[in-house]
Design a binder for these strands. Structure first.
Lengths: 341, 341
DNA sequence: TCCGTCAACCAAATCGATTTCAATTTGGTT
DNA sequence: AACCAAATTGAAATCGATTTGGTTGACGGA
């Protein structure tokens, strides 16, 4: 059913019908009601592509999906979905080319120029992230999930990674730990940098020297958590505590400790970051995992919300949200038991 | 840069330019080469929305995302993304309303009628899944990931859930287990049903009576795995083995067993289904987890591929792919140690 | 009565491509 | 040289909406 045909059935012009459905004021309430009602009855829906061509609006928010297929990502998207379900907007997932490469930039450029999305969300930004410069330059509305130091103004929502890790580390220090290993995320992303800063500043403000040997970076997998933790724990001057980037990493650390006969919470303390997953919870680990905690899903919801606001006209420049991160202490942290040799 | 303008710069008509870029044969190779080259140089790209309006094709495959934000989903999508990265097609994620409700059907109807996607992928179908009937009726191309018993022809890709669980269960029986608990997925989906059938048929063909008390259904979470396993293991006539629906469930079972001082692999055997995640692998669990194994990511890639084939004209009716599932034995399975009272 | 205002509606232009149908050029035959 | 088929190229219609710039008629005030 096309507009023309539908309008004819109603004895109205396409103009009036279009206005009635889009909520323009120049149409009488009586007519509008009739149009709306008949539209439902006859099943008329404007052709999306025609609307898009004419208005230039697409009704979709773009998200570039990393190849790693990170588990965080699904949570974030679920959050976005929750917010967008009432809106007439959907999520366009774009497979990502290799990061840092020309291909990645070209992908963003193509996307911005191809009018396939109204706005984009940039994930895991780097300190000097050219994607942000590009989108800004191209005039594509966007929101950064995370932060960047690039000197281009950009709206962002981020969690307080630095503060979270500082508190976590400080807490471990308060418990008497001095050799604290840091299993951070992949080098490059700002969040990893911020966590690194938080870790170092906590040590320094307590007068503890930073041992670069105790800092490692890598993907958030059980596998890497295990390997790093294992090699740390096999050292003669082994760490007595860990700060870890994710729940999966924590699983690996638990496993490594167990494999060496060490007790989590007494021989070794662990604090990890918990993005809050429905299927795996820090409270349920054994022993329960102390964690810095911030919901990825909630972030997704809020990001979608902010993007909608930007599209509705809110100035992006004023959007900077820094979310605090809870530190929840459970059983995986405890005082140092004995001084290591 | 619009087509008209671009064509003028080249001294050609829009018609020829359009043809040259779309690869029509009626344009000389010399001209085509020039057009293509200049398009790159001047940065001309056809306006997607105009193309869509005119051709009726959208360049997007729709996937309805459950609210649970399951971890499988991200893997599946990552797989799709891998296949689609070379194509000019993207993934449209649609937030899902409550399943089984009117809202869900309306969502599918709206989607099919709104021309926002060229095709859809239906997940976790139920035995009598009205979504399939609806899409078929509406003429929207689609592919079912999983299977349905509905008497509407539909293309599908599924893994051999029944066979996988039958083999897993049979193997446990061969090891001497007779009380085998089954922690299945949410009731309703066909895959859960198939697994149930596989489980029962294995028992029956070995002359073991099915104890309905040993069969439970629920989401794939560590939490539920723990609770179910715990309550099973506290029974006087406790099971000596588990067949579980997911890695998360297995984590929960491990935890439950440990909390009761039981050894996985000797006191209690476990086989779970492994969808193959980059961040959590069966091999790395302690003890390593025996699993029926099939890659969700590979399924996503293949599904995307099949959908593209359907869109390219392949008859959907002939598309039925049943993927075998590997059974990989590791340390979590072993012979029954002692007969329980 | 006449005019201005306002509410309600409409005709036609427009968005930017694709594609049908027709025109032109090229090259080969006789 | 004349003709025809094949190879190229174009003009204009089309996809289905939105929106600009009207028109119409009712009503109130002068």
């Amino acid at each position: 059913m096309k507009l023309k045909e539908f309008a004819k059935q109603l004895g109205l012009s396409p103009t009036t019908v279009s206005r009635a459905l889009s909520g323009y004021p120049e149409v009488s309430e009586v007519t509008r009601a009739r149009v709306v009602q008949e539209a439902v009855r006859l099943g008329y829906r404007p052709n999306v592509n025609a609307v898009r061509l004419k208005t230039g609006r697409v009704g979709a928010i773009g998200v570039v999906m990393g190849r790693a297929g990170e588990f965080h990502f699904a949570e974030f998207m679920a959050g976005m979905a929750e917010r967008l379900i009432t809106e007439d907007t959907d999520i366009l997932v774009i497979p990502m080319a290799n990061p840092e490469s020309d291909a990645e930039m070209q992908l963003y450029r193509r996307l911005a120029e191809s009018q396939r999305v109204d706005a984009m969300i940039v994930h895991s930004p780097r300190p000097n992230d050219q994607r942000i410069a590009l989108l800004h330059e191209l005039g594509m509305p966007f929101l950064v999930h995370g932060r960047s130091d690039i000197d281009v103004p950009h709206p962002w929502l981020d969690i307080d990674n630095e503060g979270a890790v500082r508190r976590a580390t400080s807490h471990l220090i308060d418990l008497g730990h001095t050799r604290i290993a840091m299993i951070n995320g992949r080098q490059g992303a700002t969040y990893a940098l911020h966590r690194d800063i938080g870790y170092r500043s906590a040590l320094q403000s307590h007068g503890i020297e930073v041992d670069p040997q105790l800092i490692v970076n890598g993907n958030f997998t059980d596998e890497l958590g295990f390997r790093f933790a294992r090699s740390f724990l096999e050292q003669p001057k082994r760490p007595t505590a860990f700060v870890a980037g994710s729940m999966m990493t924590a699983l690996g650390i638990y496993r490594a400790a167990r494999s060496l006969g060490l007790q989590i919470g007494s021989d070794v303390s662990v604090i990890a970051h918990d993005d809050v997953f429905p299927y795996l919870t820090a409270d349920n680990m054994v022993p329960s995992l102390s964690a810095t905690r911030s919901s990825m899903r909630a972030a997704g919801t809020r990001c979608a919300d902010l993007v909608l606001q930007i599209l509705a006209g809110r100035s992006p420049l004023e959007i900077h949200e820094l979310w605090p991160v809870e530190l929840i202490l459970r059983e995986s942290t405890g005082p140092v038991r004995a001084l290591q040799a």
